[in-house]
Design a protein around this nucleic acid. Sequence first.
DNA 1: TATGAATGAGTCTTCATTCAT
DNA 2: TATGAATGAAGACTCATTCAT
Lengths: 218, 218, 218, 218
Amino acid sequence: MLSQSAPPNLDETAHKRERRKEARPVELLDAALSLFVEKGYAATKVEEVAAMAGVSKGTLFLYFATKQDLFKAVIRSNLADHFPAWNQEFDSFQGSTSEMLAYAMQSWWDRIGNTRASGMTKLVASEGSNFPEVVEFYENEVMRPGRALFKAILQRGIDRGEFRPMDTDTAVYSLVSTIFFLSMWRHSLSPCDSATTLNPQAFLQSHVHALIHGWQAA
Amino acid sequence: MLSQSAPPNLDETAHKRERRKEARPVELLDAALSLFVEKGYAATKVEEVAAMAGVSKGTLFLYFATKQDLFKAVIRSNLADHFPAWNQEFDSFQGSTSEMLAYAMQSWWDRIGNTRASGMTKLVASEGSNFPEVVEFYENEVMRPGRALFKAILQRGIDRGEFRPMDTDTAVYSLVSTIFFLSMWRHSLSPCDSATTLNPQAFLQSHVHALIHGWQAA
Amino acid sequence: MLSQSAPPNLDETAHKRERRKEARPVELLDAALSLFVEKGYAATKVEEVAAMAGVSKGTLFLYFATKQDLFKAVIRSNLADHFPAWNQEFDSFQGSTSEMLAYAMQSWWDRIGNTRASGMTKLVASEGSNFPEVVEFYENEVMRPGRALFKAILQRGIDRGEFRPMDTDTAVYSLVSTIFFLSMWRHSLSPCDSATTLNPQAFLQSHVHALIHGWQAA
Amino acid sequence: MLSQSAPPNLDETAHKRERRKEARPVELLDAALSLFVEKGYAATKVEEVAAMAGVSKGTLFLYFATKQDLFKAVIRSNLADHFPAWNQEFDSFQGSTSEMLAYAMQSWWDRIGNTRASGMTKLVASEGSNFPEVVEFYENEVMRPGRALFKAILQRGIDRGEFRPMDTDTAVYSLVSTIFFLSMWRHSLSPCDSATTLNPQAFLQSHVHALIHGWQAA
DNA sequence: TATGAATGAGTCTTCATTCAT
DNA sequence: TATGAATGAAGACTCATTCAT
């Protein structure tokens, strides 16, 4: 329908090249994310990133002035903002807060945790000390909104008498820590250690279940 | 009599080439731990490690053949075997399992978590992918014994009717994840992020409290 | 018209970053041969080789992964196969075997001995003990074929009744030793020792003449 | 008889240590000669030399200020002056000049060529270019006297009508080259190349035989 | 004298970055 | 835009040499 007016035998390569022109930064950022997460910032060579993205070293520098810029761009670009949607869901959620919490965590796992996107957390945690601005950026764009969302959920539970009163500022970290752990696990430990078989899904349910029980009003 | 006639504060500079073969490795490993944890493996220069240990570059290579060897030695040397003592305490512990669990976690925090030693966890998690043998070593020497200890505690709770039945293999990760998070937090996030003020001590108590409640038999 | 308005001698500096990928390895091998022969393997710095070839240190490593690889490549590359041609000449030679032998030696001197290529022999003899594979390579590619050629010549002389019977396997070394000596002389002794004036050409003739006489049938 | 006055039970170690004190430079020079010949100057570490001599690195520097000094001392010390004796033998030799020449070469082989001492020749030839003074020293102390001796022998043959007239200055190199070749062979090629089985003794006889025949008056 | 721990200048090698094409 | 040859600053590692004991 859309491409009716396009010449039908427009050769593939031309098409590809055209699309690629736009896509290249994305391909580069994708490759960079994978490699930075897998091997660390320093151990990743720009040439590898370029190769994985299917371009030459020189081309990479056409889009990113320095390796650091590439790194920062990786962080920035992969912050698909889920919070508006999540806040929306939170506002209109009908069930109990326990269900809500379980849903929120599962939702994170499905949409981020179990995705290459969770590599971001590993990245920030691992390389952060050498990139303070990145940490700050991440804190502002991800951590703070995340904590705010969790805090609101916990507060809802307290307000509705489902959860007993608690210091929600502290309690949110029980959820944050879970997210951190699963992110690190997926990208650091599990790839190396084939022996240990943690089932992340099972852990998530068991863990959240325990926390909810622990928080529930007597 | 002791140092009356001698200038009291000459010692510091005097003993430059003093032979302290025994002390050297420890000093170097200490410096290396600090710098590896703070800046990462690649971003740490051997000369910096040597300087922090108060020796020259060449001296470091007298004790560690390569930078990698130094790294592995850092991992190895900091594995002060806490487990025998902990297992001992576990065996002779008199109180309830809830108290025991709280004590175990607090004990970890006091003796390791709140110490430079917890940098090890960050190190392994951050740099592990480039050093598979190190990860394996850590899994065998630290992770596995740690999980075994936690599992035994949980099982004790179940056996004594304090905790409700659960899949202990999965539940231990609720404790492991806490340890991971606090280790990463201390060495990655908190140093960069002065804004966020997580009180680790408060979090630990709140979190463990919630978990225990969640696990307790109705 | 050609370069009226342009400064005529700008070319030299202009083509600095000119791409000459084809030419590079040859230039580097040339420089390396000279320096290795003159100063020895260890005393030659890769930067010197690069400088003599007119490129930077880094460029050298674009073509040769390590200094050792460069060394081996020097050996390999300078083994211009003279043997097919020489064998050809041997087969079709019309004159006496004495003439043939004199011609062969003179030919070696003109085409190799009196050339930078004879540095190869010095190289292998001097540095060989640290590069066993290189020696083996040289033995197979140069020494063995060389001895075979000489042996064939001597045998021709015997068969035709020009030379008296002899152990040709041993006798070839009378020729080999001459080649060795002249190679070493040219690159080791003569450069240092201006006092001694050996005329290699005269020596070669005198020496070969004596040998031929010594071998001739009574 | 000689040691009558010495305490019979003077313990071994004391004796040894005493002797060693004097011997140490010799042991060091011996070790250095072996290693320099085998591995080359640069590839030989002073610590290896010390170890082979059974002393510590520091001790070596008590006797030789620098590695270069050690090298020069090796050259100097191993020049046991055979020429007075050889000149003596030459003067009083009764047989034919052919016999004399064969005897001289064989004598060199037995007393030097087939000895570690011939490593000196390899050393000078291999490392000479980096040590011009060493080459000069060797030329003056070894080469020149050697050529003079050979020249005298050849001249004797001519004077007695055994050899035909020749340019003796050039002809001596036929003998010198033989010595060079055998020295290099023993220390460079033969150790690496187990396949090629040159019998040096056989070669020497064959080669000298040919030369003598070649020089003999018709 | 003898030792061997310590030093640091010197070298190989890597890799982010540039730039002529 | 895209390429990839070229660069050179930076860092790991070596080893002759020193020196306190």
